[in-house]
Structures are given as C-alpha cells and as structure tokens.
C-alpha cells in the first residue's frame, strides 16, 4: 500500500498544448526560458517540460520516488518525502553539495548555476498548494486529463483498467510502478518508454538500498576493528616486552 498522492500521465491523451508547462511557470513564478515550449528543457527555471517524439507528446518532471535517492543521500536532510507524496526541498538547510543531482536515477534536480548562493530546483508536486487545499497547477490546467492527480493507489487502479480495456493502445508497462522501488509519477505510453526519452533499466529496487547494504556494515567494522586493533596493540607490546626482558636477562 503506497501512501500519498501522485500523478498519472497518459501519453495517448496528451495533445502537446503546453498548458501544464505554462501553468507550472505561473504557479512557481518562473521566468520565460524559451519562446517555444517544445524546445525548452528542464532547468532551474523550468520544472516540467513537454517533449515531442514524432506524433507523440510526453511530459518530464521529477518522478517523486517512494523512497527517493536524493533524500537518502542528502547529508543535512534538506530533501524529504512529504506526506502528500511529493519529494520536497528546503533551501534553508541545503549546503550545495549536489549529491542529490548525482544520485537521482532520472537526473531531475537542477541547480541555479548562475547564482552566487544557489539552490536545487525541481518540481515539488505543488506541495504547498496541496497543503493549502488546492490542486497541482499542471493537473488543473490539463484540458484532456492526460495528467491526473490523486491518491496513488487509485491512480494505479485507473492505469491498470485503461491498459486492460485497451490493450492494443498501450505498451504493456506502467512506467514508475516498479522503477527505483516505485514512483509517485506514473506514465502510460503506446510505445516502449525508451522511445520517449525515459531512462531505461532503472533498478527495480529502491535506490537507497544500494547504499544501505554498505552502510549497515559500519557498526560491525567499528566494533570488530576496534577490538582487533586494541588486541593487537596489547599482544605486540607484550611480545616486545618479553623479548626485551629476555635480552636484558641474557645480557646480565
């Protein structure tokens, strides 16, 4: 049972109008970055993009992982999973090590490279708006319901239903259901996801697991190592003393 809300994006319904792109810019007070939204890319001032692949259009934004790599690597805990389901960021805590950017399997976090005191920038699934009782701007703006927002479990049911009812229309996979242990952004597509620029072969396991397997060995390394070194010190010292005593006895 996955808690919180998420987004279901259906490529077959997207007409590439760019309403979500515009609404996101407005809701987050972001400046214009490209006259043609289809040519824009994610940046510190663009949190969601619409990309064209032949006749198909797809959105890209933070996938809001269930167990986010970015949050697990952040040494000061500036990135957190919100109870709304969003992965949120606190610039007041951030020290700017950019490990989150390195760790994200989807390469979503962007940086304000142009600023002297920069922050990480990415989609927040409109966490503050949702907490105020409003809805994410991209969902509100979408005229075709290609973007759905709501309880993640319900979205999974809807996605599975759509695939079952129209198996010819969809590629047999919900992107985000298993990727990196599951994300709060789910995508349905008529074609394999690589063809739409989605990262292929993202591990099925939650990313923090990869680190945890090494980290959980630390207590034993410290305790066994400490005892071993202490023991070796005592043993070798005693050995040297005995050798010395023997020498002096022989000398006398």
């Amino acid at each position: 049972m996955r808690k919180g809300n998420g987004i279901l994006f259906d490529v077959t319904l997207c007409v590439g109008c760019g309403s979500c792109y515009e609404a996101c810019k407005e809701a987050n007070n972001l400046p214009e970055t490209n006259k043609d939204f289809l040519k824009d890319h994610l940046s510190d001032n663009t949190f969601t993009v619409v990309e064209q692949y032949g006749d198909l259009f797809t959105r890209k934004n933070c996938m809001h992982c269930d167990d986010p790599a970015c949050a697990s690597v952040c040494l000061v805990g500036a990135i957190k999973k919100s109870e709304t389901g969003a992965v949120i960021y606190d610039a007041e805590k951030c020290i700017g090590c950019r490990y989150c950017m390195q760790a994200c399997p989807y390469k979503m976090p962007r940086y304000e490279w142009g600023k002297a005191l920069p922050s990480i920038r990415k989609c927040s699934l409109c966490d503050t708006r949702v907490k105020e009782g409003k809805l994410p701007a991209c969902y509100e703006a979408c005229p075709t319901e290609a973007t759905l927002y709501g309880n993640l479990e319900e979205l999974i049911v809807i996605a599975k239903k759509r695939m079952k009812e129209n198996p010819d229309q969809y590629f047999d996979k919900i992107y985000g259901l298993e990727e990196a242990g599951g994300t709060h952004v789910l995508v349905l597509s008529p074609v394999p996801f690589e063809q739409l620029g989605f990262v292929p072969n993202v591990p099925k396991e939650a990313m923090p697991e990869f680190t945890m397997r090494a980290m959980e060995k630390i207590p034993s390394v410290v305790s066994i190592g400490g005892v071993f070194l202490g023991g070796m010190y005592w043993l070798t010292k005693r050995k040297n003393e005995l050798a010395k005593e023997k020498n002096t006895n022989n000398g006398n």
Partner: peptide, 8 residues
C-alpha cells in the same frame, strides 16, 4: 542537521 543514512 543530521541524516545518518547519507554516505556524505
């Protein structure tokens, strides 16, 4: 500010 799960 601690996050003990972080290698960093």
């Amino acid at each position: 500010m601690w996050n003990i799960h972080s290698v960093m």
